[in-house]
């Protein structure tokens, strides 16, 4: 099994008519994802390489039975796009777009939590998720992921998500689902949401968690693992050598006031029984040891 998506998930691409949306929408379709529709308010009735375009998510969902969307539209339009998808009853909204204002994120996260509890938002500013061999929604290069489990991956960083998949593939270890939750201050889906889903998924036997400096999401995940998880976890935290007070690219990645250091996160994870690597390769090696011992 996989978490959140599988081969039956039908996906609408909001922004399929744009150059990036088109590129990844078609790549995702080639991978095997059921890319059933795109949306554009003024281009209803046209198509992108055979994929029909509808005026709205509601129209596209009604015509295709889709339950998920993937958002590839500019930052200023993201808030409207997320709420439109939620109002259309989408169960999963994957937002790839980066650079969304933090107040927009804080607002739509809380509107979803209050009014649309059935909608799971992933991102913004995330690479999406891939259930290898079943579905790939977002910008992950599909060929770097080996299908079949037993490992689930959750990561705050896009490129480190790929690195984690790649490390496991090199060791011939398969993945059930790999979720990139994104590096923004208010991610729609948290580490804990993913850990909970992996814990409940019978095919996932172990989890690899990739974190980074800033905030306290890794510490909260460590607390969750300590008290609620039976499955083994390996981890890596990026930014051990990052200087305090400097934002390292991601809006969320900053060590400030002594908070959010990689060291504190690694200690919290180790205290929860997680095997913590010093770099992505080492985290992959630790996972190989865990898998060998299953």
């Amino acid at each position: 099994m996989s978490i959140f998506v599988d081969e039956n998930t039908k996906v609408i691409y909001q922004g399929l008519t744009g150059s990036t949306g088109r590129y990844y929408g078609l790549l995702n379709r080639d991978y095997g994802t059921q890319v059933v529709a795109g949306t554009h308010p003024k281009k209803a009735g046209t198509d992108v390489d055979g994929i029909p375009i509808f005026a709205s998510v509601a129209d596209a969902a009604e015509a295709t039975g889709a339950t998920a969307t993937c958002i590839f539209i500019p930052a200023g339009g993201v808030q409207g796009a997320v709420l439109e998808a939620a109002e259309a009853g989408m169960e999963l909204v994957v937002c790839i777009t980066e650079g969304v204002p933090a107040h927009d994120e804080a607002n739509f996260f809380n509107v979803l939590r209050r009014d649309f509890p059935g909608t799971r938002l992933l991102g913004p500013n995330c690479p999406g998720l891939i259930s290898p061999g079943k579905a790939n929604i977002g910008i992950t290069a599909g060929h770097i992921a080996k299908a079949g489990g037993p490992v689930g991956i959750v990561s705050r960083s896009g490129t480190l998500t790929y690195q984690a998949l790649y490390e496991l593939q090199q060791k011939d270890i398969g993945v059930t689902t790999c979720v990139g939750i994104g590096g923004d201050p208010v991610p729609g889906t948290s580490f804990i949401d993913c850990l909970e889903a992996f814990e409940a998924d019978p095919e996932t036997k172990a989890v690899m968690m990739i974190g980074e400096i800033g905030g306290s999401a890794e510490e909260e995940a460590a607390d969750y693992i300590k008290h609620n998880m039976s499955k083994p976890v390996s981890s890596y935290i990026a930014g051990v050598t990052a200087p305090a007070g400097k934002k390292m690219g991601h809006a969320g990645a900053i060590v400030s006031g002594g908070q959010g250091t990689a060291k504190a996160k690694m200690e919290a994870l180790e205290d929860a029984g997680v095997r913590v690597g010093q770099n992505p390769t080492e985290a992959g090696e630790l996972m190989a040891e865990i898998v060998a011992g299953l």
Binding site: S155, R156, S157, G158, T159, L160, T161, Q163, G183, I210, E212, I213, Y236, A238, G239, V240, T241, A242, M248, G249, H250, A253, Q278, N279, P280
Partner: peptide, 17 residues
């Protein structure tokens, strides 16, 4: 030079290591 904040941070870590 790296692509993505996470990989860039990780690159600094590995250079140090």
């Amino acid at each position: 030079i790296a692509n993505g904040a996470g990989l860039a941070m990780s690159t600094l870590d590995v250079v140090n290591q």
